[in-house]
């Protein structure tokens, strides 16, 4: 028996496993990635193009069946974070820059790593392009990282609605 004032610690290991269903729209997106294509889907109501669509326009609540858009692999860094603090399950060594890339013609950004540029030069409006892995599959890890294109920075006005 524990002495007065002491607690008893019960170890209770717990694990739940799931079969994840990507869904119809995300499956189309991931199959595109496996062919080195970044496919967007348009909302038939508001016209916005979703990349990595979950099947519906979250604003209008309708299926994103207004047309598939084969997007360029180039876009604008709208916002970013330089990660200096390690955390459990981290797959990249610190420090690294992670950011939101708004592809040209898309209305929602993709998340990715920003490399081939010193961290203190990463900035909003930076123009970037995808660097693909040699072997690609139905996973966003097929895009290794995003690197600067060398183009002049995008004007804030062009992406302020997507922050």
């Amino acid at each position: 028996m524990p002495e007065r004032g002491e607690g008893t610690i019960v170890e209770r290991p717990l694990r739940l496993d799931y079969d994840y269903t990507a869904g119809l729209a995300q499956s189309r997106f991931l199959k595109g990635i496996a062919q080195k294509k970044i496919l967007g889907e348009r909302c038939p109501k508001c016209g916005k193009v979703y990349v990595g669509s979950r099947g519906s326009c979250p604003t209008d609540g309708v299926a994103t069946d207004g047309g598939e858009v084969d997007l360029p692999h180039k876009g604008t860094l709208t916002t970013f974070c330089v990660v200096n603090v390690p955390f459990a399950g981290q797959s990249v060594e610190c420090p690294y820059a992670s950011g939101y890339i708004l592809l040209d013609g898309a209305d929602i950004p993709l998340m990715g790593l920003i490399q081939e540029i010193p961290h203190d030069q990463v900035r909003m409006g930076l123009r970037v392009e995808a660097v693909w892995e040699d072997e690609v599959g139905p996973t966003l890890q097929s895009i290794k990282y995003w690197k600067p294109t060398g183009e002049p920075d995008a004007d804030y006005e062009t992406y302020k609605m997507h922050l």
Partner: peptide, 16 residues
């Protein structure tokens, strides 16, 4: 087992 549709894709036609 809904093998292809995610939750949103199951729900949307019901709501409509």
């Amino acid at each position: 087992k809904e093998e292809r549709r995610n939750e949103v894709e199951i729900l949307m036609p019901v709501i409509h």
